[in-house]
Amino acid sequence: MAVKVAKDTSFSAAIRRVFLRARPETKAYLQLSPGLILVAGALLVPLALLILASFWSSHSGGEIDTSFTLANYEKLLERPGYAMILLRSIGIAASVTLVTLVLAYPLAYFVAFDVRKHKLIWLILITLPFWTSYLLRVFAWKVILGWNGAINSGLTSLGVIDEPFGFLLYNPLSIVITMSHAWATFAILPIYLSLEKIDRNLLDAAADLGDGPLKRFFRVTLPLSMPGVLAAAVIIFIPTVGDYITPAMVGGPDGMMVSNLIQAQFSKANNWPLGAAVSVVSITSVAMLSFVFVASVRALTARIR
């Protein structure tokens, strides 16, 4: 028998023992912590402070009074203008979501089922425009839709119309056109992923059981791709309600949205407690709406099945 050396009792060995025996989970959480600190410090704390600030008030000189008040919320309730802008924002965002999904679905379907060889190329082509500056894409739409813009000048110079279309820019329509373009990738990819996951045997089975192509689509393909559609709807709806650049650039006075209101309070009006209150109201109402939407769609699809 070899002579056994007794356990190393030094302090450093004790530390090593503790570290070596630490559960992998502990080490994992340790590695996760810097990122979580970033999210907490730059997102959660500021959001909390924003909520807090919505209960403050601002004097005419721009001085901030940090005593608790509900005045900002009362103001939002009293003046119908605020509610109208919020409702308009929600209405525009809902239309954008609907239009984007309806346009995106056939393309996602095409890439998932019809494209064989060049799937990757299609996917890269779809994602590429998304990576270009949002500001520039909105700006480009302004250039395209304007009174003297590409469409109007193009059509006039071709002699198709005598007078430029005025309805193309500075209204909710132009916002919907611009946004449904900007968010297309976010609709196509989730729908594509959920279509791609569908077991092709299921479709063959449905066909085998006597379903025609259309029936098969509505009874098998569409329900199975619903999770992707739902995810896309939420991903598009939430940020579009609060989008700033698009309404500011192509919305005009009739296309003013809630974010323009917020921005105004933080700059020109210099009443950022009120701006904070508008932010809180819009975020909570959007979150609640999305929740109700997802829950009801889930309940609906569950009943159909």
Binding site: L47, L49, I235, G242, D243, S259, I262
Partner: peptide
Amino acid sequence: IIGLIMLPMVIPELILAVSLLVV
């Protein structure tokens, strides 16, 4: 944890911006 990390992707950038501005 993943949900928390992805949260900034769904919050409107304007809200991120103004809340950071306040802080």
